[in-house]
């Protein structure tokens, strides 16, 4: 047995299968909404790793295990999407830990959530004074979502009665030196127009541009391959990279 070739072939099988199965499971599993999703991800990954390198057993049982776990996750996803109660039973629910500025002690005890955990997560959200918080919710994945009291919310253009300009989503026209023709058609522009824009910014050709994005107002963002910065900020203190 040529172990190198066997492991290589089994790695191709494991890699390809994992890629297809994860695409099959979709984005819900990839986002790992709950702790259980996270464990499922680890388990499936671990089975794939064994399929790839454990040549003391033939590949088939591992592949069947991979298939079995994927099917179970898929069934769980379908059940959770179809029945709300099943979703709550399987994934749990978000829980309010601060209500109207008051910490819910009993809820915290039930969740085995320490006050230091709460403070840490508040700080991660940029809140250093607990008095600023109106509501805090522990989400299904354990992350904290907060709503600050009205007095502590940042001012928005609508607060100031200012009409903000709609910017919309940017559309990539050039990606890595290559023209994205479909996107150019979508924004009702042509290559002649784009060439004019490039020349106005000092680029001779599309291949000199790393990224070009147009926003809803028609404003074009261009970034070339050659950085024009004369004195770029260097944040490394590791001399070996210089």
């Amino acid at each position: 047995m040529n172990e190198t070739i066997v492991v290589l072939v089994r790695s191709i099988i494991a890699f390809g299968t994992l890629l297809i199965f994860t695409r099959f499971l979709g984005k819900q599993q990839v986002s790992q909404i709950t702790f259980f999703d996270y464990i499922l991800g680890i388990t499936i990954g671990s089975i794939a790793a064994n399929l790839s390198s454990d040549i003391t057993t033939d590949a088939w049982p591992y592949w069947v295990a991979l298939f079995g776990w994927t099917i179970m996750v898929l069934i769980m996803q379908k059940v959770a999407v179809r029945w709300r109660q099943a979703s709550v039973y399987i994934d749990g629910e978000p829980v309010i830990v601060i209500m109207n500025g008051e910490i819910m002690d009993e809820v915290m005890k039930k969740l085995r959530f320490r006050i230091s955990d709460l403070q840490e997560q508040l700080r991660e959200k940029g809140v250093f004074d607990i008095k600023e918080v109106q509501y805090a919710v522990v989400e299904k994945d354990g992350q904290l979502s907060i709503l600050k009291k009205a007095d502590n919310l940042p001012v928005t253009p609508s607060d100031m009665k200012i009409k903000a300009t709609y910017r919309g989503m940017g559309t990539e026209l050039i990606y890595d030196g290559v023209l994205v023709e479909n996107n150019l058609k979508q924004v009702n522009k042509d290559q002649l127009w784009l060439q004019g824009q490039l020349e106005a910014k000092g680029y001779k050709d599309i291949t000199e541009v790393f990224l070009a994005v147009i926003d809803a107002t028609g404003e074009l963002f261009l970034d070339g391959y050659k950085d024009k910065m004369e004195n770029p900020v260097d944040i490394t203190d590791f001399k070996g990279l210089k």
């Binding site: 047995m1 040529n2 172990e3 070739i5 066997v6 072939v9 089994r10 040549i55 003391t56 057993t57 033939d58 590949a59 088939w60």
Partner: peptide, 15 residues
């Protein structure tokens, strides 16, 4: 035969 079946059998069985 071993060269043909090495991808689908256990190493211990071949040994």
């Amino acid at each position: 035969v071993q060269k043909r079946i090495q991808f689908s059998v256990e190493k211990s069985e071949l040994n």
